[in-house]
Every structure is written in C-alpha cells, then in structure tokens.
C-alpha cells in the first residue's frame, strides 16, 4: 500500500487484510506492554490543517505504539495561508525525512493532491479531506461492526459483513465518513441505506452503490446497525438545509422511541463528536447497544494496521 486516500483504493482482499492486521494490533493493545518496535526509525508526520483532536490523538497513539517517531504539525492558526501552504509544507516534510504524512485538510482532494502532485514522495494517509473521504474512520466502523456481528453469529470473518444491513443517517452531503463508509461497506458486501432529508443527500447519490430513504422509522426495523452522522452545523453556513434543529431531531434524530424500533441485536454507531440532543439522544448514545466508545478504541488498532501496511515494508523505489 503506497497511500490510503479513499476507501475506493481498497479491494475486498486489501480491506480484509487490513481488518485482520487490525485484529492482531488490537490483541497487542490488550497487553500490559502495548508498544511494538515495528516502525522504529520511521517518521510519521501528523499534518492537521483542521482541528480534530480525537483523530489526531488516535493517529498519534497508533504511530507511537508502533515506535515510529511522530511529529505533529497543527497548521490551523499558524501563519500558513492557503495555496502556498500545502505544497511548501510537503517540501518541508520531505526535507525533514518524513516517511508518511497523515493529512487532515479542509479541502476535498487535498490528500490526493499531496500524494500525486509530484511535490514529494512520502506516503499519504488521508485523515479526512473536506467533504470527500475519511477512510480510516470507515475502516474502524467496519472493524467494530464485524467484531460485534461475529460475536453474535460467528462464521468466517471474511464473510461476516456480507449482506449486513447498515443504515447511515444524517448529513450525507457534507460527510466524508458517509462517503468512505458507503464505498467500504459495498466492497465488503454489506447492504447500505442512506437516510437523510433530501437537502442533505448530494445530487448524484442515485449512482452510489446503496439505497436511499427519507423515512427513518421505516428503515430501522430491518437493520443490523445504524450509523448516526454528526450534523455539521459549521458547514451549514445559513444554508437552510432543514427548517430547525427541533424539526431535524423529530424526523431524523435517533431517540429512545426509535431505539426500540431496532431489532434486538442492532448496533448504534456514531463517528463522534456527537451533538447530543440533535442527531442522537443521550438514551441512544449511552445504551448498551451503542459502540461509540468501542469505536474510539478500535480506531487506534485500525490506524496501527494502516500505518503498518503503509510503512513496514521495503522503501518505495
């Protein structure tokens, strides 16, 4: 693996390999000594042009657990101005001997650009680019889902997600998590339905490999998991995507009543950070079927696996 930019970069075999490696990584994280020497001498740069404390900490922990040297560069608030910044930062990182860059950026395609513009030769791991993708989030969601469903049903781990029914609810339009999840879950054979008000579904969604619905109540009784997306109020910009927060909650919020529409085994997932009371109620977020805290823990294992596959092998020519 040279870069991880999009969930679409992963074949079924590649995705399963990554999830399997993540299982081994997770096992090491249950031990007293969590640190592995695997990436000793490698330098990972966390390049965050956008605030995201939880993703940054997760990648930082993953890299450190593998003994990589970690340099964290939070460009937000620094003197970096747009345009010049990404390229010049890339050149700086190259000069500093970075082996991989974990990039979070507000511009869709920034990771793709860093990987392919010819500015530097480092491996790029997309930690969220604008409203495009966030592949490690989708991987940790799939990891969590696979684990939970396998605990219940058993069977070949490679096939657990085949036919699994997943509802992704909320602001699909602005969600990089939704895009990555649709692509990855499709690759792994799951059946995805997006549920959102029509204003928060992108034009063109009809060509995505999933179904769509505007009716959450009708969807919930038939799913194995419901993934609630954060309502990205900061991206709404007065766009009036829905009349009011109250109406959104009434029609698309996961509350106690809707929780009880789910089958007994169904899981409640959320990529965080949550707007409690808007897209998810406390009752749903804190219920035993919620995997929200588990997702955070699994994030470290999945990111260790991604870093391992990106960096442990021979140097790219």
């Amino acid at each position: 693996m040279r870069h991880l930019l999009s969930a679409a970069d992963l074949s079924r075999e590649g995705a399963l390999e990554l999830l399997d490696v993540a299982e081994e990584m997770a096992a090491t994280q249950a031990r007293e000594i969590k640190k592995l020497p695997t990436l000793r001498g490698r330098t990972v740069v966390n390049l965050f042009f956008e605030d995201s404390t939880r993703t940054r900490i997760s990648f930082e922990a993953a890299a450190k657990r593998l003994s990589a040297d970690v340099i964290t560069f939070s460009a937000k608030g620094s003197s970096v101005s747009k345009g010049e910044s990404l390229k010049d930062t890339a050149l700086t990182l190259q000069a500093m001997g970075a082996d991989a860059v974990v990039l979070r950026h507000s511009a869709s395609g920034a990771a793709h650009r860093l990987a392919h513009a010819g500015w530097s030769g480092v491996g790029v791991l997309n930690a969220g680019d604008g409203t495009h993708e966030h592949p490690t989030q989708a991987l940790l969601d799939a990891f969590t889902l696979r684990r939970r469903l396998a605990e219940r049903a058993g069977g070949d781990p490679a096939r657990v997600l085949e036919g699994a029914r997943v509802a992704v609810v909320g602001d699909v339009l602005h969600s990089r998590v939704a895009r990555s999840n649709v692509l990855l879950l499709e690759t792994l054979g799951a059946d995805v339905v997006l549920v959102a008000p029509p204003t928060l579904l992108p034009v063109g969604v009809g060509t995505w490999p999933c179904r769509t619905s505007w009716d959450l109540d009708a969807v919930l009784p038939d799913v194995d998991a419901v993934m609630v997306l954060r309502v990205q109020r900061e991206r709404m910009g007065g766009g009036g995507f829905f009349p009011s927060a109250q109406e959104y909650t009434r029609r698309f919020g996961l509350d106690g009543r809707r929780l009880r529409l789910l089958p007994d085994h169904a899981l409640v997932m959320h990529p965080g950070p949550m707007n409690r009371g808007l897209e998810i109620s406390a009752e749903a977020a804190d219920s035993p079927r919620s995997t929200i805290v588990e997702q955070v823990a699994n994030g470290v294992a999945v990111r260790m696996a991604a870093l391992y596959l990106l960096l442990a092998g021979e140097d790219a020519a």
Partner: peptide, 21 residues
C-alpha cells in the same frame, strides 16, 4: 453557486466538491 467547485452531478457527489448546478 456559492463556493461551487465543479459541475454538480455524479462526479461531484463522489469527490465531495461543492456542486455547480
């Protein structure tokens, strides 16, 4: 077309670039 980046359609939906209808 506020903030629009590319033609709004199948490709913009996948790329997460704001559409220009």
């Amino acid at each position: 077309t506020e903030g629009a980046q590319m033609h709004e359609g199948v490709v913009s939906s996948v790329l997460g670039l704001r559409g220009w209808p």
